[in-house]
Computed example of a mutant assay.
Amino acid sequence: MKRISILALTSLMIVGQVKAQINQNAASQNTRITAGGNDHYTFPMSDKVIRQAVTFKNRYGITIAADLYLPKNRGSETLAALAVSGPYGAVKEQSSGLYAQTLAERGFVTLAFDPSYTGESGGEPRNVASPDINTEDFSAAVDYLGLHSIVDRSRIGIIGICGFAGMALNAVAVDKRVKAVATTSMYDMSRVMAKGYFDNMTSEQRTSTLEILSQQRWADAGKGEPAPATNNLPEKLSGNEPQFVVDYFNYYKTPRGFHRRSINSNGAWTATNALSFMNMPLLTYLHEISPRPVLLIAGQKAHSRYFSEDAYKAAAGPKELVIIPNASHVDLYDQTDIIPFDKLTVFFEEHLTAGKPAQKEKAAALGSANGK
């Protein structure tokens, strides 16, 4: 793997200004006007679930837009629930919605949300990420789920995909209401931005990057608005790109995964987006998730695999690392024959049981039936 600077990192994963404007006056915990049915989703709607468009506010007062998935045949009992977000630069109509819908088919109440400053969620300026605020977004999703009438608030878990896996782990470390967490194709965005891929960024490269970003702040302040990053996914492949860039392109820039509100499909992060990540390590308190369980899933061929492996080493308490044979990083976004949904189902049924032995037996039986 070639050395890749933080500026190059920006070019590999991301994309400009999101055109859709968000209604900042949306009432907290209301249904959005779009009702979740009038927009493009990158996966077909299941006839086994109900999808509801909802909004809620995070601790900073930012309105978060989400899709709530409810099993149709759910009976009268309260259910375990999962908050889902990611990948980094994606929206709820893409991978996180697919995960949420599939797990709702399996009996969970699920919530796929757009992080602050992206998609249909609020926050200005647009196309900004924050290790703090995006961590808070997960806890705000837990707030919402815990107030829902059909959710058992003692049985809430989190799934983070790609760059939002790091934020998910960070949220669970501090938010003791969450009982279990799983990640797929994990990125630690603070680590890769601060140190480069495989920690190959030199101190001189880091200093140079921070010099450039610091000067950019004056340029932004002078114009009264942040400049977009100039590097992003190409509109066409030249044939010289690393394979993982090709994989990103084949998801975000083709009908397979394109969405007009996705930063990676149709825009760019701000030029100074990396600053807070370079200064605030996300996984400092990873060990404090213990004794709650952690499940880390990565592709065998994923360029990002080492993030999951290192997180597994650093985590304390119950933990499991699952490597999917021959899978790439992006395969775990949407390839339903590769994503280990059986494993995720068993994991959350086992650890979100709230002392219900019948559900533990069901989880064990499902795992046995699927050879997991």
Score class of each variant (00 low, 15 high):
His40Leu: 14
Arg74Leu: 07
Arg74Lys: 13
Tyr333His: 02
Phe307Ala: 10
Val49Gln: 01
Ser308Ile: 06
Val142Ser: 00
Ile338Trp: 05
Glu309Met: 09
Tyr285His: 15
Ala66Cys: 07
Thr118Gln: 09
Ser290Asp: 14
Arg74His: 11
Ala364Gly: 01
Phe43Asn: 06
Thr183Trp: 12
Leu79Arg: 14
Asp47Lys: 15
Ile62Lys: 05
Leu7Pro: 00
Ile263Gln: 13
Gly157Thr: 10
Ala27Glu: 13
Glu105Ala: 01
Ile338Glu: 02
Ala90Glu: 06
Ala129Asp: 05
Tyr41Gln: 07
Leu237Tyr: 13
Ala268Cys: 07
Gly257Leu: 07
Ala83Gln: 01
Asn326Ile: 10
Phe249Gln: 10
Ala141Phe: 04
Cys162Tyr: 01
Val142Phe: 01
Leu233Asp: 06
Gly89Leu: 05
Lys362Thr: 14
Leu275Ser: 05
Leu210Trp: 00
Ser154Phe: 08
Arg3Asp: 15
Leu12Met: 15
Gly36Thr: 13
Ala83Trp: 00
Gly146Val: 05
Ala83Val: 12
Tyr144Lys: 00
Tyr69Phe: 10
Ser46Cys: 09
Asn266Val: 01
Asp47Met: 09
Val192Lys: 02
Ala168Phe: 06
Thr202His: 09
Asp199Asn: 14
Val18Ile: 12
Ala80Asn: 08
Lys19Arg: 09
Leu82Ala: 02
Gln101Thr: 11
Asp188Leu: 04
Tyr248Lys: 13
Arg217Leu: 13
Asp188Thr: 00
Pro125Phe: 07
His303Cys: 10
